[in-house]
Design a protein around this nucleic acid. Structure first.
Lengths: 209, 209
DNA sequence: TGTACATCAGTGAACGCGCGTTCACTGATGTAC
DNA sequence: TGTACATCAGTGAACGCGCGTTCACTGATGTAC
């Protein structure tokens, strides 16, 4: 009880100290739970426990705030891909670049399925000139995979330019469609997912199994 | 001048006669030009030259109207695919199922690139229980292509179940990303497009060239 | 170490706006006799 | 063929609401001397 009120008092200090990031985090939570259309400046300020006006100290307008939330969502996706890749453990006898690509694609798709609203905001259109690139970037992680595939001798060099596009579009398309529930039941989704990932490897001329 | 005023008078009759379809057409035009967020009930009524209340004679609410516009957009996509397929002319010496699949995929992608806002609304989530299936349906056209590919002997029967999913996700993913301008310049897009379509044929085990 | 003061990061009230929807209504159309 | 009347498809005014943004402000913090 005492602790609670102490915490509350801390939350009510005049200077928030971390409002910029807090707003972005609140935005991610709000979108994930209530969908993209529920994202508003007043709504976000309310959740964060701050007046609407305070937002303008950190973002020029709602558009810019949304753009940053979108970027944060892409970074979340990047982290999930990275984690999945890192879980593929090296083995002195085996080269793991193929497994890493599979894991990356699988994580991308899972993000779309399990967090459809975050997936949606990650790829909205917006105009915000002065935005740094996301880090980690899903696109760059994918390109890293492709490079490894080549240096391990699994992928032909002449496929270097087309490989990332082929992999990205297939996996992105699947994630987009599945996140809208257009791929049927859970079992259907699971089967279709492995079909698509196998399809990617086939079109890269890499034998996964 | 006289004709103009006659037309205007006709437009001002009390009974519109075609309001249901007019609203959907107005919706498509509005979305294409001004984007999905500009779609409102009042806005649509204004464009159509009718009071906001009149809309409720034909749609239970805005959600249902949006769902019908979305469906109409999918049908537009279906028509573009169908037209592209029909332009592939039969030749007594050649079987054209491969060319038709290529044309279908190409048309799907072109729709995403040239009409990004219509592409967006075609695949939004919505809840509308009592909606007939779109006709022509892009998904069914694709499946027709696959069947032809098999009966022409180009595609193995064991690929029947995975083929449409592989083709759809790749083409849809490309269209979605390109429609957001994430594929770079026009030349990049054109190159990437043929890489993706070739990738689809490769993963189906069909040699296009 | 204490004080004056500039700067920073918030508040609270108010703005105009356009939205979706409801209400009571009315003009136009179609139908039965 | 004309008339009475039910039904259909619109109108116009009003509702409450929440939105993004602006304004003048104030409390908290950091810094120079």
């Amino acid at each position: 009880m005492f602790t609670m009120s102490t915490l509350k008092k801390q939350a009510q200090v005049f200077h928030h100290g971390d409002l910029h990031d807090s707003l972005i985090r609140a935005g991610l939570k709000q979108v994930e739970k209530q969908g993209l259309n529920s994202l508003g400046l007043r709504q976000l300020a309310l959740i964060t426990g701050v007046s609407p006006t305070a937002v303008y100290r950190h973002f020029v307008d709602l558009e810019h705030l949304k753009a940053e939330i979108s970027k944060a969502s892409r970074e979340l996706l990047g982290h999930m891909i990275l984690d999945a890749m890192n879980k593929v453990k090296a083995n002195s006898k085996r080269k793991i670049s193929k497994e890493k690509l599979w894991a990356a694609g699988s994580a991308y798709i899972d993000f779309g399925i399990t967090k459809p609203n975050l997936f949606e905001i990650a790829f909205i259109k917006y105009e915000s000139p002065e935005l740094e690139k996301e880090n980690p970037s899903p696109w760059e992680l994918l390109n890293g995979c492709i490079d490894e595939l080549i240096s391990d001798g699994f992928l032909k060099k002449e496929h270097r330019s087309s490989a990332p596009i082929i992999a990205w579009t297939a996996v992105h398309g699947f994630a987009a469609l599945a996140s809208q529930g257009m791929m049927g039941s859970k079992a259907d989704v699971s089967l279709a997912k492995s079909q698509v990932l196998n399809g990617v490897f086939d079109s890269l001329g890499v034998n996964f199994h």
